[in-house]
Design a protein around this nucleic acid. Structure first.
Length: 377
RNA sequence: GGGUAGAUGCCCGAGUGGCUAAAGGGGGCAGACUGUAAAUCUGCUAGCGUAAGCUUACGUUGGUUCGAAUCCAUCUCUACCCA
Protein backbone atom coordinates (compact mmCIF):
# COMPACT_ATOMS: atom_id res chain seq x y z
CA UNK A 1 0.00 0.00 0.00
CA UNK A 2 1.86 3.05 -1.18
CA UNK A 3 -0.63 5.61 0.12
CA UNK A 4 -1.25 6.13 3.81
CA UNK A 5 -3.76 8.47 5.39
CA UNK A 6 -1.96 9.84 8.43
CA UNK A 7 -4.74 11.91 9.91
CA UNK A 8 -8.10 13.38 9.06
CA UNK A 9 -9.71 16.68 9.89
CA UNK A 10 -12.58 16.54 12.36
CA UNK A 11 -14.66 19.28 10.78
CA UNK A 12 -14.21 18.45 7.11
CA UNK A 13 -13.18 15.64 4.79
CA UNK A 14 -9.62 16.99 4.64
CA UNK A 15 -6.91 14.44 5.16
CA UNK A 16 -3.19 14.37 5.64
CA UNK A 17 -1.33 11.53 3.97
CA UNK A 18 1.84 10.32 2.39
CA UNK A 19 2.40 8.61 -0.89
CA UNK A 20 5.43 6.40 -1.50
CA UNK A 21 6.68 6.61 -5.08
CA UNK A 22 9.75 5.27 -6.89
CA UNK A 23 11.56 8.60 -6.68
CA UNK A 24 10.59 9.44 -3.14
CA UNK A 25 7.77 9.92 -0.71
CA UNK A 26 5.47 12.89 -1.03
CA UNK A 27 3.33 14.45 1.64
CA UNK A 28 -0.32 15.16 0.86
CA UNK A 29 -2.20 17.33 0.29
CA UNK A 30 0.24 18.22 -2.44
CA UNK A 31 0.43 20.88 -5.12
CA UNK A 32 2.39 19.84 -8.20
CA UNK A 33 3.85 22.54 -10.43
CA UNK A 34 3.28 21.94 -14.13
CA UNK A 35 6.25 21.31 -16.38
CA UNK A 36 4.53 20.33 -19.60
CA UNK A 37 7.60 20.23 -21.80
CA UNK A 38 9.93 18.83 -19.18
CA UNK A 39 10.47 22.18 -17.55
CA UNK A 40 8.61 24.32 -15.07
CA UNK A 41 8.72 27.36 -17.29
CA UNK A 42 11.49 29.86 -16.49
CA UNK A 43 12.80 27.99 -13.43
CA UNK A 44 15.85 25.82 -12.80
CA UNK A 45 14.96 22.38 -11.41
CA UNK A 46 16.96 23.20 -8.29
CA UNK A 47 14.87 26.31 -7.78
CA UNK A 48 11.68 24.27 -8.08
CA UNK A 49 13.05 21.85 -5.51
CA UNK A 50 14.20 24.67 -3.25
CA UNK A 51 10.64 26.03 -3.30
CA UNK A 52 9.48 22.79 -1.77
CA UNK A 53 7.91 21.15 -4.80
CA UNK A 54 7.73 17.41 -4.16
CA UNK A 55 6.48 16.31 -7.54
CA UNK A 56 6.04 17.99 -10.92
CA UNK A 57 4.11 17.23 -14.08
CA UNK A 58 5.18 16.42 -17.59
CA UNK A 59 2.97 15.93 -20.61
CA UNK A 60 2.72 12.88 -22.83
CA UNK A 61 1.40 14.71 -25.86
CA UNK A 62 4.03 17.44 -25.93
CA UNK A 63 6.98 15.20 -25.14
CA UNK A 64 5.85 12.59 -27.63
CA UNK A 65 5.81 15.20 -30.40
CA UNK A 66 9.07 16.74 -29.29
CA UNK A 67 11.67 15.46 -28.64
CA UNK A 68 9.96 12.04 -28.81
CA UNK A 69 9.63 9.48 -26.03
CA UNK A 70 12.27 7.14 -27.51
CA UNK A 71 14.81 9.95 -27.34
CA UNK A 72 13.90 10.58 -23.73
CA UNK A 73 14.03 6.87 -22.93
CA UNK A 74 17.56 6.68 -24.35
CA UNK A 75 18.59 9.67 -22.28
CA UNK A 76 17.51 8.15 -19.00
CA UNK A 77 13.79 8.83 -18.98
CA UNK A 78 12.32 12.12 -17.93
CA UNK A 79 14.37 12.12 -14.74
CA UNK A 80 17.65 11.63 -16.55
CA UNK A 81 16.68 13.98 -19.34
CA UNK A 82 15.60 16.88 -17.13
CA UNK A 83 17.76 16.22 -14.02
CA UNK A 84 14.67 16.42 -11.80
CA UNK A 85 15.17 13.59 -9.33
CA UNK A 86 12.00 13.74 -7.29
CA UNK A 87 8.72 12.16 -8.29
CA UNK A 88 7.12 13.09 -11.53
CA UNK A 89 3.61 12.64 -12.85
CA UNK A 90 2.79 12.56 -16.53
CA UNK A 91 -0.53 13.54 -17.96
CA UNK A 92 -1.76 11.18 -20.63
CA UNK A 93 -2.51 13.61 -23.43
CA UNK A 94 -6.21 13.26 -22.76
CA UNK A 95 -6.53 16.90 -21.91
CA UNK A 96 -4.92 17.88 -25.20
CA UNK A 97 -7.69 15.96 -26.89
CA UNK A 98 -9.95 18.58 -25.41
CA UNK A 99 -7.79 21.69 -25.71
CA UNK A 100 -6.75 20.96 -29.30
CA UNK A 101 -10.28 19.97 -30.23
CA UNK A 102 -10.28 21.72 -33.58
CA UNK A 103 -7.47 19.49 -34.71
CA UNK A 104 -8.75 16.07 -33.77
CA UNK A 105 -11.23 13.28 -34.27
CA UNK A 106 -12.12 10.77 -31.56
CA UNK A 107 -12.81 7.13 -32.40
CA UNK A 108 -13.09 3.94 -30.40
CA UNK A 109 -9.50 3.17 -31.23
CA UNK A 110 -8.10 6.49 -30.04
CA UNK A 111 -7.69 10.07 -31.15
CA UNK A 112 -6.62 11.20 -34.59
CA UNK A 113 -4.71 14.45 -34.27
CA UNK A 114 -3.41 16.92 -36.67
CA UNK A 115 -0.56 17.98 -34.46
CA UNK A 116 -0.07 21.64 -33.67
CA UNK A 117 3.61 21.74 -34.65
CA UNK A 118 3.58 20.75 -38.30
CA UNK A 119 -0.01 19.66 -38.85
CA UNK A 120 0.90 16.07 -39.64
CA UNK A 121 -1.64 13.40 -38.78
CA UNK A 122 -1.03 11.23 -35.74
CA UNK A 123 -2.98 8.66 -33.79
CA UNK A 124 -2.84 8.56 -30.01
CA UNK A 125 -4.38 5.50 -28.39
CA UNK A 126 -4.67 4.35 -24.78
CA UNK A 127 -1.93 1.77 -25.36
CA UNK A 128 0.37 4.29 -27.01
CA UNK A 129 -0.18 6.81 -24.23
CA UNK A 130 0.81 4.15 -21.71
CA UNK A 131 3.81 3.18 -23.78
CA UNK A 132 4.98 6.77 -24.05
CA UNK A 133 4.53 7.32 -20.33
CA UNK A 134 6.39 4.09 -19.69
CA UNK A 135 9.27 5.41 -21.78
CA UNK A 136 9.17 8.71 -19.93
CA UNK A 137 9.44 6.73 -16.69
CA UNK A 138 7.19 8.94 -14.61
CA UNK A 139 6.29 7.84 -11.10
CA UNK A 140 2.61 8.25 -11.84
CA UNK A 141 1.09 7.83 -15.27
CA UNK A 142 -2.41 9.06 -15.94
CA UNK A 143 -4.81 6.96 -17.94
CA UNK A 144 -5.74 8.14 -21.39
CA UNK A 145 -9.20 9.64 -21.04
CA UNK A 146 -11.59 11.76 -22.99
CA UNK A 147 -12.18 15.09 -21.31
CA UNK A 148 -15.59 16.29 -22.50
CA UNK A 149 -16.13 19.98 -23.05
CA UNK A 150 -18.33 22.27 -20.98
CA UNK A 151 -21.18 22.56 -21.50
CA UNK A 152 -21.85 18.99 -22.52
CA UNK A 153 -25.23 17.30 -22.79
CA UNK A 154 -25.93 14.22 -20.73
CA UNK A 155 -26.05 11.84 -23.65
CA UNK A 156 -22.60 12.88 -24.82
CA UNK A 157 -21.21 12.84 -21.28
CA UNK A 158 -22.50 9.31 -20.83
CA UNK A 159 -21.02 8.14 -24.11
CA UNK A 160 -17.74 9.84 -23.31
CA UNK A 161 -17.58 8.31 -19.85
CA UNK A 162 -18.19 4.87 -21.26
CA UNK A 163 -15.38 5.37 -23.74
CA UNK A 164 -13.07 6.56 -20.96
CA UNK A 165 -13.90 3.41 -19.01
CA UNK A 166 -13.19 1.16 -21.98
CA UNK A 167 -9.94 3.00 -22.57
CA UNK A 168 -9.12 2.59 -18.88
CA UNK A 169 -9.44 -1.16 -19.18
CA UNK A 170 -7.19 -1.13 -22.25
CA UNK A 171 -4.62 0.91 -20.34
CA UNK A 172 -4.82 -1.54 -17.48
CA UNK A 173 -4.31 -4.46 -19.86
CA UNK A 174 -1.32 -2.80 -21.46
CA UNK A 175 0.22 -2.13 -18.06
CA UNK A 176 -0.35 -5.73 -16.95
CA UNK A 177 1.49 -7.01 -20.00
CA UNK A 178 4.33 -4.53 -20.04
CA UNK A 179 4.90 -3.67 -16.38
CA UNK A 180 6.31 -0.19 -16.94
CA UNK A 181 8.94 1.02 -14.48
CA UNK A 182 9.88 4.33 -12.96
CA UNK A 183 13.51 4.29 -11.93
CA UNK A 184 13.86 1.08 -9.95
CA UNK A 185 10.23 0.91 -8.94
CA UNK A 186 6.83 0.17 -10.39
CA UNK A 187 5.12 2.97 -12.21
CA UNK A 188 1.76 3.86 -10.68
CA UNK A 189 -1.40 4.45 -12.67
CA UNK A 190 -4.32 6.73 -11.89
CA UNK A 191 -7.78 6.49 -13.39
CA UNK A 192 -9.70 9.64 -14.30
CA UNK A 193 -13.33 10.10 -13.29
CA UNK A 194 -15.43 11.85 -15.91
CA UNK A 195 -19.17 12.48 -16.17
CA UNK A 196 -19.31 16.24 -16.63
CA UNK A 197 -21.84 17.93 -14.33
CA UNK A 198 -24.10 14.88 -13.94
CA UNK A 199 -24.04 13.37 -10.46
CA UNK A 200 -25.14 9.89 -11.49
CA UNK A 201 -22.53 9.82 -14.25
CA UNK A 202 -19.79 10.88 -11.88
CA UNK A 203 -20.79 8.06 -9.59
CA UNK A 204 -20.90 5.56 -12.43
CA UNK A 205 -17.53 6.66 -13.74
CA UNK A 206 -15.96 6.37 -10.30
CA UNK A 207 -17.45 2.93 -9.69
CA UNK A 208 -16.32 1.61 -13.05
CA UNK A 209 -12.76 2.78 -12.55
CA UNK A 210 -12.59 1.45 -9.00
CA UNK A 211 -13.88 -1.85 -10.31
CA UNK A 212 -10.95 -2.04 -12.73
CA UNK A 213 -8.64 -0.96 -9.92
CA UNK A 214 -5.92 1.69 -9.99
CA UNK A 215 -3.29 3.14 -7.66
CA UNK A 216 -5.15 6.42 -7.37
CA UNK A 217 -8.07 8.30 -8.84
CA UNK A 218 -8.28 11.66 -10.48
CA UNK A 219 -11.29 13.82 -11.10
CA UNK A 220 -11.10 15.20 -14.60
CA UNK A 221 -13.35 17.23 -16.79
CA UNK A 222 -13.05 20.17 -14.43
CA UNK A 223 -11.35 23.50 -15.13
CA UNK A 224 -12.77 23.39 -18.63
CA UNK A 225 -14.76 26.60 -18.34
CA UNK A 226 -17.52 25.53 -15.97
CA UNK A 227 -18.72 27.85 -13.19
CA UNK A 228 -17.04 27.33 -9.84
CA UNK A 229 -20.07 25.78 -8.14
CA UNK A 230 -20.19 23.11 -10.88
CA UNK A 231 -16.54 22.39 -10.26
CA UNK A 232 -17.15 21.82 -6.56
CA UNK A 233 -20.19 19.69 -7.31
CA UNK A 234 -18.20 17.52 -9.70
CA UNK A 235 -15.72 16.87 -6.89
CA UNK A 236 -18.47 16.23 -4.34
CA UNK A 237 -20.22 13.85 -6.69
CA UNK A 238 -17.12 11.75 -7.26
CA UNK A 239 -15.29 11.64 -3.93
CA UNK A 240 -17.81 9.47 -2.00
CA UNK A 241 -17.29 6.67 -4.50
CA UNK A 242 -13.52 6.67 -4.37
CA UNK A 243 -11.64 4.40 -1.94
CA UNK A 244 -10.53 6.02 1.28
CA UNK A 245 -7.10 4.42 1.04
CA UNK A 246 -6.18 5.72 -2.39
CA UNK A 247 -5.04 9.21 -3.32
CA UNK A 248 -7.51 11.56 -5.01
CA UNK A 249 -6.34 14.06 -7.53
CA UNK A 250 -8.29 17.05 -8.89
CA UNK A 251 -6.80 17.70 -12.28
CA UNK A 252 -5.91 21.20 -13.37
CA UNK A 253 -7.05 23.02 -10.26
CA UNK A 254 -7.21 25.68 -9.10
CA UNK A 255 -7.13 29.13 -7.54
CA UNK A 256 -5.81 29.26 -3.97
CA UNK A 257 -9.30 29.38 -2.42
CA UNK A 258 -10.47 26.55 -4.70
CA UNK A 259 -7.59 24.36 -3.60
CA UNK A 260 -8.43 24.89 0.06
CA UNK A 261 -12.09 24.16 -0.63
CA UNK A 262 -11.22 20.95 -2.39
CA UNK A 263 -8.87 19.82 0.32
CA UNK A 264 -11.83 20.25 2.64
CA UNK A 265 -13.75 17.94 0.31
CA UNK A 266 -11.15 15.21 0.60
CA UNK A 267 -8.87 15.86 -2.38
CA UNK A 268 -5.17 15.07 -1.90
CA UNK A 269 -3.45 16.19 -5.06
CA UNK A 270 -3.53 19.24 -7.32
CA UNK A 271 -1.79 20.64 -10.31
CA UNK A 272 -2.42 23.91 -12.06
CA UNK A 273 -0.68 26.11 -14.59
CA UNK A 274 -2.19 29.17 -13.01
CA UNK A 275 0.67 30.24 -10.72
CA UNK A 276 3.28 30.00 -13.46
CA UNK A 277 1.20 31.20 -16.37
CA UNK A 278 -0.24 34.28 -14.72
CA UNK A 279 3.21 35.02 -13.33
CA UNK A 280 4.50 35.38 -16.87
CA UNK A 281 1.58 37.70 -17.52
CA UNK A 282 2.45 39.97 -14.62
CA UNK A 283 0.09 38.70 -11.95
CA UNK A 284 1.39 37.98 -8.47
CA UNK A 285 -0.45 36.17 -5.73
CA UNK A 286 -0.62 37.92 -2.38
CA UNK A 287 -2.40 37.15 0.87
CA UNK A 288 -4.82 39.91 -0.12
CA UNK A 289 -5.55 38.44 -3.53
CA UNK A 290 -3.77 38.62 -6.85
CA UNK A 291 -2.29 41.88 -8.07
CA UNK A 292 -1.24 42.93 -11.54
CA UNK A 293 2.30 44.16 -11.09
CA UNK A 294 2.12 46.01 -14.41
CA UNK A 295 -0.51 48.40 -13.07
CA UNK A 296 0.35 52.06 -12.65
CA UNK A 297 -0.33 52.09 -8.91
CA UNK A 298 2.86 50.10 -8.31
CA UNK A 299 5.09 52.53 -10.19
CA UNK A 300 6.70 53.96 -7.08
CA UNK A 301 5.73 51.33 -4.54
CA UNK A 302 8.78 50.38 -2.47
CA UNK A 303 7.06 47.46 -0.76
CA UNK A 304 7.80 43.81 -1.53
CA UNK A 305 5.29 41.90 -3.61
CA UNK A 306 3.84 40.19 -0.57
CA UNK A 307 4.62 40.00 3.11
CA UNK A 308 4.97 36.24 2.80
CA UNK A 309 7.35 36.39 -0.17
CA UNK A 310 10.35 34.10 -0.34
CA UNK A 311 13.61 35.86 0.66
CA UNK A 312 14.85 35.58 -2.92
CA UNK A 313 11.99 37.79 -4.06
CA UNK A 314 11.13 39.83 -1.00
CA UNK A 315 14.10 42.14 -1.52
CA UNK A 316 12.66 43.53 -4.74
CA UNK A 317 10.21 46.42 -4.65
CA UNK A 318 6.94 46.30 -6.51
CA UNK A 319 8.23 49.27 -8.47
CA UNK A 320 11.25 47.28 -9.65
CA UNK A 321 9.16 44.24 -10.57
CA UNK A 322 6.83 46.48 -12.54
CA UNK A 323 9.81 47.96 -14.31
CA UNK A 324 11.07 44.50 -15.27
CA UNK A 325 7.75 43.61 -16.86
CA UNK A 326 7.42 46.87 -18.72
CA UNK A 327 10.95 46.53 -19.99
CA UNK A 328 10.27 42.97 -21.10
CA UNK A 329 13.07 41.63 -18.95
CA UNK A 330 13.17 37.87 -18.40
CA UNK A 331 13.98 38.27 -14.73
CA UNK A 332 10.46 39.59 -14.14
CA UNK A 333 8.93 36.38 -15.48
CA UNK A 334 11.28 34.34 -13.36
CA UNK A 335 10.75 36.25 -10.15
CA UNK A 336 6.96 36.13 -10.32
CA UNK A 337 7.00 32.46 -11.32
CA UNK A 338 9.22 31.77 -8.35
CA UNK A 339 7.02 33.85 -6.10
CA UNK A 340 3.69 32.37 -7.20
CA UNK A 341 4.93 28.82 -6.86
CA UNK A 342 6.26 29.66 -3.43
CA UNK A 343 2.85 31.06 -2.59
CA UNK A 344 1.03 27.91 -3.72
CA UNK A 345 3.48 25.50 -2.15
CA UNK A 346 3.44 27.38 1.15
CA UNK A 347 -0.34 27.46 1.06
CA UNK A 348 -0.60 23.70 0.72
CA UNK A 349 2.15 23.14 3.29
CA UNK A 350 0.12 25.33 5.62
CA UNK A 351 -2.91 23.19 4.91
CA UNK A 352 -0.97 20.05 5.84
CA UNK A 353 0.13 21.60 9.13
CA UNK A 354 -3.39 22.77 9.89
CA UNK A 355 -4.88 19.33 9.25
CA UNK A 356 -2.33 17.82 11.61
CA UNK A 357 -3.08 20.46 14.21
CA UNK A 358 -6.82 19.94 13.85
CA UNK A 359 -7.36 23.55 12.83
CA UNK A 360 -7.99 23.16 9.14
CA UNK A 361 -11.34 24.89 8.95
CA UNK A 362 -10.01 27.95 10.71
CA UNK A 363 -6.98 27.96 8.49
CA UNK A 364 -9.05 27.73 5.33
CA UNK A 365 -11.64 30.27 6.35
CA UNK A 366 -9.22 32.91 7.50
CA UNK A 367 -7.10 32.55 4.38
CA UNK A 368 -10.07 32.82 2.05
CA UNK A 369 -11.61 35.69 3.95
CA UNK A 370 -8.51 37.80 3.60
CA UNK A 371 -7.70 36.66 0.06
CA UNK A 372 -11.09 37.51 -1.34
CA UNK A 373 -11.82 40.60 0.71
CA UNK A 374 -10.22 43.11 -1.60
CA UNK A 375 -7.29 43.64 -3.84
CA UNK A 376 -4.09 44.72 -2.15
CA UNK A 377 -3.24 48.35 -2.73
C1' G B 1 21.53 82.16 -53.40
C1' G B 2 19.24 77.87 -56.48
C1' G B 3 16.95 72.96 -56.65
C1' U B 4 14.46 68.62 -54.79
C1' A B 5 11.82 65.95 -51.10
C1' G B 6 9.03 66.39 -46.89
C1' A B 7 5.92 68.32 -42.41
C1' U B 8 -0.33 63.40 -40.21
C1' G B 9 -2.86 61.92 -33.46
C1' C B 10 2.15 60.62 -27.33
C1' C B 11 6.07 58.37 -31.15
C1' C B 12 6.85 55.97 -35.99
C1' G B 13 3.92 55.73 -40.18
C1' A B 14 -0.36 54.78 -44.17
C1' G B 15 -3.70 57.76 -46.59
C1' U B 16 -3.47 61.88 -51.98
C1' G B 17 -11.28 65.29 -53.04
C1' G B 18 -16.69 62.66 -49.73
C1' C B 19 -16.94 55.70 -47.08
C1' U B 20 -11.43 59.93 -42.32
C1' A B 21 -11.72 61.37 -35.45
C1' A B 22 -8.01 59.40 -39.75
C1' A B 23 -5.09 52.13 -41.52
C1' G B 24 -0.94 49.60 -39.20
C1' G B 25 2.92 49.40 -35.62
C1' G B 26 5.07 51.16 -31.04
C1' G B 27 4.19 53.33 -26.42
C1' G B 28 0.48 54.04 -22.57
C1' C B 29 -3.93 52.35 -19.51
C1' A B 30 -6.91 48.28 -18.12
C1' G B 31 -8.87 43.17 -18.35
C1' A B 32 -8.52 37.78 -19.08
C1' C B 33 -5.80 33.41 -17.92
C1' U B 34 -7.48 26.78 -13.83
C1' G B 35 -4.62 18.21 -16.35
C1' U B 36 0.27 25.15 -20.67
C1' A B 37 -0.24 25.48 -29.16
C1' A B 38 0.16 30.98 -23.71
C1' A B 39 7.06 35.87 -21.95
C1' U B 40 -0.02 34.96 -24.64
C1' C B 41 -4.75 36.98 -25.80
C1' U B 42 -8.66 40.95 -25.52
C1' G B 43 -10.37 46.00 -24.94
C1' C B 44 -9.49 51.25 -24.63
C1' U B 45 -6.06 55.26 -26.02
C1' A B 46 -8.24 64.11 -29.09
C1' G B 47 -11.92 66.91 -25.59
C1' C B 48 -16.98 67.18 -23.43
C1' G B 49 -21.36 63.96 -22.77
C1' U B 50 -24.70 58.05 -19.99
C1' A B 51 -25.98 58.49 -25.09
C1' A B 52 -27.63 60.49 -29.80
C1' G B 53 -24.23 64.09 -30.58
C1' C B 54 -21.23 68.42 -30.29
C1' U B 55 -16.31 70.74 -30.42
C1' U B 56 -11.37 70.93 -31.87
C1' A B 57 -7.73 68.13 -35.23
C1' C B 58 -3.36 66.04 -40.53
C1' G B 59 3.10 72.64 -40.04
C1' U B 60 0.96 78.50 -40.99
C1' U B 61 -2.42 81.71 -43.27
C1' G B 62 -5.64 82.29 -47.15
C1' G B 63 -8.23 80.21 -51.48
C1' U B 64 -10.93 76.57 -54.94
C1' U B 65 -15.20 73.20 -53.98
C1' C B 66 -21.76 71.41 -52.05
C1' G B 67 -17.48 68.94 -49.46
C1' A B 68 -10.16 69.35 -48.32
C1' A B 69 -5.30 65.66 -44.39
C1' U B 70 -5.89 65.17 -49.69
C1' C B 71 -6.21 70.55 -55.06
C1' C B 72 -3.98 75.93 -55.47
C1' A B 73 -1.18 80.08 -53.33
C1' U B 74 1.68 82.01 -49.20
C1' C B 75 4.73 81.72 -45.28
C1' U B 76 7.53 78.72 -41.51
C1' C B 77 10.50 74.70 -40.47
C1' U B 78 13.37 69.97 -41.70
C1' A B 79 16.51 66.81 -44.84
C1' C B 80 19.51 66.16 -49.01
C1' C B 81 21.84 68.13 -53.53
C1' C B 82 24.10 72.24 -56.53
C1' A B 83 26.71 76.97 -56.28
Amino acid sequence: MSFTVLSTDSSSAARRGCLVLPHGTVETPIFMPVGTQGTVKTLHPLEVEELGAQMILGNTYHLWLRPGHETIRELGGLHGFTTWQKPMLTDSGGFQVWSLAKLRKITEQGVNFSNHLDGSKMLLTPELSMEIQGALGSDIAMLFDECPPYPCDEAYAEKSLALTSRWAQRCKNWVAENEPRSGTGRQQHFGIVQGSVYADLRERSARELVEIGFDGYAIGGVSVGEPEHEMFRAIENAVPFLPHDKPRYAMGLGTPPQILEMIARGVDMFDCVMPTRIARHGMAMTLDGPINIKNLIHAKDPRPICESAHPHVAGFSRAYLRHLFRAGEILGLRLLSYHNLHFYLRLVAGAREAIEAGTYSDFKNSFIQRYTRSTSS
